[in-house]
Design a protein around this nucleic acid. Sequence first.
RNA 1: GCGCCCGUAGCACAAUCGGAUAGUGCAGCGGAUUUCUAAUCCGCUGGUUGCAGGUUCGAGUCCUGCCGGGCGCACCA
Length: 611
Amino acid sequence: MNAKGIEKLVAEAVENLRRRGALTTDTTPVVGRTKSEEHGDFTTNFAMIAAKLERKKPRDIAALLAAELSGHADIETAEVAGPGFVNLRVRGDAWVRGMDEALTAGESFGRLPPTGNAPINVEFVSANPTGPLHVGHGRGAVVGDALVRLLRAAGREVSAEYYWNDRGRQVRELGRSVWIRLHESLHGKLPPIEDENWYRGDYVKDLARDAASDARFAPETSASATSGPLAALAALGPDEPRFVEYGCDRMKASIIATLARLRVAFQHQTSERSIAATIEPFFSDLEARDLAYRDAGALFLRVEGREGEDKDRVVRKSDGEWTYFATDLLYHANKLDRGFGRLINIWGADHHGYIPRMHAGLAALGRDPKALEVLLVQMVNLTAGGQPVKMSKRSGDFVTLDELVDEVGVDATRYVFLTRRHDSQLDFDIELAKKKSLDNPVFYAQYGHARLCAILRRGAELLDTRRVPEPLRPLLAEGLGRTSGGAIIPPGALGLPEERKLARTLLALPDHVAEAAEALEPHRIVYFVQELSQAFQRYYTERWKRHADPVLPPARLDQPALAAWDWERTAARLRWIRAIRAAVRGALDIAGVQAPERMDRSDEGEREDEA
RNA sequence: GCGCCCGUAGCACAAUCGGAUAGUGCAGCGGAUUUCUAAUCCGCUGGUUGCAGGUUCGAGUCCUGCCGGGCGCACCA
């Protein structure tokens, strides 16, 4: 029972009207959730959209549709409102049925059936294997991974992919940097270096230190009894290609390990080196077809005038080296050749100028530029209690992703990265993300789940300690989900407006999944968790504090009071709470954030200022 | 100079292919409560959606022009 379901129902009604000749349009209706309670549960603007083609007044069409819909078994009321909306209110027992579906789906609630479309390739992170990932990469990683999970939940077939720039100048610099550090540890000082391009982070020292034990240097190290392995390696000189390979392999492994920690995984990794292997014939073919040409010793691809590009672009420099643009282009073509219908890329926002060039390049190749969709992820500013944390890249002194995860944990890292749309800047408050209090949104969401679990645990305890009157035990067992159909919980037992509203909220998860996948905006799932958690917390507190109507009987009740308790209502609410929990779990699963059964209260308690 | 992204409450952000009265958190002020995990909840304050036009039944959303912020315009990556 969600907007998609209602949409089908409205479409049927429209079809009926058409068959009877009351309407002629073939406009497909769109149904949305209402913002305001008084407008019912769902609304459609079909009448206003169709009005022009029908050449009728919107309200007249709306009246026809409303009359048709009000006959349906699931519809309580169908009313014409405003300029021509049809507002629908769904019957209470239809909500209860909807929750049964959610409970049957359990952990996988929110997942949509497969669309059967061509698979989607999502390429993200793809940071050069020349150093550890930093915080900005982390955001791209989490957004990309959540997007992959989201698209899968929405029934798409998705492959997550990492592209390694393991060729070209950047990695040559890494190889040279390894040599520089070898030289340093051998001679106690850096060799004379005429430029600033080498990588001077501490991780390179580690690479240099471990190089001697790497198998690919065995010929040198084993034959170096007198001078020592370090000297043997240093003698290879700064341009030794094995330094590059070695450095890349080590960095790749380290980057993948960091991402795995963050629960980010890839189905496929592509190496630029392997792409470059076929680049010669590819571009000479283009040259033969006059899609590329030589000028001043360089090879240019004809992209001028396409996708807003104002000049042709170099694919091979006059020094003979292929540009990254050339291999990137070939790589995207390669992905299309592998059968992907859509190529989604996640880039740092500073690369946005590259998008038109990529599109133009694809167009020049005769490919559909629209197949490549680029999501730009904006900057992350780290703060601690409102104060900016310095992230100077100078001398390799910047905050790595590993350090961030060490500091605040995987769940908080992921959650915070998903609290903003990808294209807006993000302030990441490290202090807040660590706090075990409710102004920390991660904590709030996880606590909400733990609380749902606590209620169900207590319900189970009541049953197991036999404090529930004998004849009513099957009912409670049903509410707790221990049986299915073992007892009938009357739909009317869950009749409060708040309960109905919350049912509507939780059953909207499949709609949110569909919409978020369509928009490529995983952050919406996090908003859903927040909304649902908050709605339940409000309900839970209000029921008890304001209405003296708790979900479970208070602990102090004696046996006669328990006998008089309304167990039917309790069973209905427990079932409903399980449905809420299924929705929270389903949503957190898409975000890749854990849903803990309990929060340990132990540490951190109070230790404010003691001054 | 040209191009791209963003301007929504004091701060940080939402807003379902253009839908009805623009929401949520934090901060501020006031309150509930002695329990089912209070690690809770409620109320109040706060807005000309940067500005000016346009498109239409209807605009935070689309178009044009300004203003402000960020970024990009290499035979760099």
